[in-house]
C-alpha cells in the first residue's frame, strides 16, 4: 500500500518531468540546438494557468484541466517567439551561440515574471478536484492520477502525429538528416518553428500539471532545465523514449530513493548513478553507439 503510493507519486512527478524533457528533445531534433529557456517555458505555462484562473469568474471553481488549451496556446506562442528571436537569426552559427541566446531569453522571461507577478510561489486550480480515491487499499491522489492521465494523452497524441502524419514524417526526417530533408524539399524553417511551438507547449503543459500540486515561482526555471537536460542526456541524446526514461529515473530517485535514505543523499546518489551509467554506457540508456565513419 505504501509502495503503491510512492510509486504513484514517482510516476506523477516523472510524467511531468517527461513532458518537459520530451518538449526539449522535439526542439533539439529539429534544430540540433539546446533551448536553455525551456525551463522558463514550464514556468510560463504555470503562470499562464494562474493568470487564466484569475481572469475566470472566481465564484465558479473551474477545474484546471479546462485551462489546458489556453495554456498550450500561450506557451506555443511563446515558443514561436523564442524560435524567432533566439534561434532563426543565428541558426547557421555554432550551436553553442543558441545555448547563450536562449539563456538570455530565459533571463528575460524569469525576471519579467518576477517583476510583474511578484516573487511569491503561486498555485493553479486543481486539475480535476482534490482528495483521494481509494483503490486496493491505497489512497491515490486525484491530482497525481490526473497528471499521469493528461501526460499519457499528450504523449499518445504526439506519437500519433509523429508516426501517422506527413508533418510527423518530416519531423523525423529532419531529426535524422537536416541536409537531406532540405534537399527533399522539406521547409526547415517551418519545421523548426513548429518544433519550438510544440516543444514549448509541452513544457507549458507540464507547468500547468505541476502548478497546483507543487506550486510555481518565477525562479523555478533553472532547476527544471537542469532536470530536463539530465533526463535527455542520460536517456540518450535525441531519443524521445530515452528522455521519458531519464525523467522517470530522476523521479524515482527524488521520491523512491529519498523515502529510504534522505533528500540530500538521494540527490547525491542520482548524480553518482548518472556517472555510473555514463561510465558503462557512454551513449546513454537509449542512445545509438557512435560509430567511426569517416
Amino acid at each position: 500500500m505504501l509502495l503503491t503510493q510512492i510509486a504513484l507519486n514517482a510516476l506523477a512527478l516523472g510524467s511531468a518531468y517527461a513532458l518537459v524533457a520530451i518538449g526539449f528533445v522535439l526542439v533539439l531534433n529539429a534544430t540540433t540546438a539546446v533551448n536553455f529557456a525551456h525551463g522558463e517555458g514550464v514556468v510560463a505555462g504555470g503562470f499562464a494557468a494562474v493568470a487564466l484562473a484569475i481572469l475566470l469568474p472566481p465564484d465558479i471553481p473551474i477545474p484546471g484541466l479546462l485551462l489546458l488549451p489556453g495554456v498550450l496556446l500561450v506557451t506555443a506562442l511563446l515558443g514561436l517567439a523564442i524560435g524567432a528571436l533566439a534561434y532563426l537569426p543565428i541558426r547557421k552559427r555554432p550551436p553553442i551561440s543558441v545555448f547563450v541566446s536562449t539563456i538570455a531569453v530565459g533571463i528575460i522571461i524569469a525576471n519579467g515574471l518576477n517583476a510583474t507577478f511578484g516573487a511569491a510561489p503561486r498555485t493553479a486550480p486543481p486539475l480535476i478536484g482534490v482528495g483521494t480515491i481509494e483503490f486496493l487499499g491505497a489512497s491515490l491522489s486525484r491530482q497525481s492520477l490526473a497528471i499521469i492521465g493528461i501526460t499519457a494523452v499528450l504523449m499518445s497524441g504526439l506519437a500519433m502525429v509523429l508516426q501517422r502524419t506527413q508533418l510527423g514524417r518530416q519531423f523525423r526526417a529532419c531529426a535524422q538528416d537536416p541536409e537531406m530533408a532540405r534537399a527533399l524539399g522539406i521547409r526547415l524553417t517551418r519545421i523548426t518553428m513548429i518544433s519550438f511551438a510544440l516543444g514549448t507547449a509541452f513544457a507549458g503543459a507540464a507547468g500547468l500539471l505541476l502548478a497546483h500540486q507543487f506550486f510555481i515561482s518565477p525562479s523555478d526555471g533553472g532547476t527544471l532545465i537542469l532536470k530536463a537536460y539530465i533526463a535527455v542526456v542520460i536517456g540518450g541524446w535525441g531519443s524521445l523514449r530515452g528522455a521519458a526514461a531519464g525523467a522517470m529515473l530522476i523521479a524515482f530517485f527524488e521520491v523512491g530513493v529519498a523515502t529510504f535514505s534522505s533528500q540530500p543523499l538521494a540527490e547525491g546518489l542520482l548524480y553518482i548513478a548518472v556517472l555510473l551509467v555514463l561510465f558503462f554506457r557512454p551513449q546513454g540508456l537509449f542512445g545509438e553507439p557512435q560509430q567511426v565513419r569517416v
Binding site: 543565428i90 552559427r93 547563450v100 533571463i107
Partner: peptide
C-alpha cells in the same frame, strides 16, 4: 529597478544575435 535583469537579458540576446562568434 526590478526590470534591470530583463534589460540585461535583452542586451545579452542582442549581443549573441549580432555577434554569434
Amino acid at each position: 529597478d526590478e526590470y534591470y535583469l530583463v534589460a540585461v537579458g535583452i542586451l545579452l540576446l542582442a549581443a549573441v544575435v549580432f555577434a554569434p562568434e
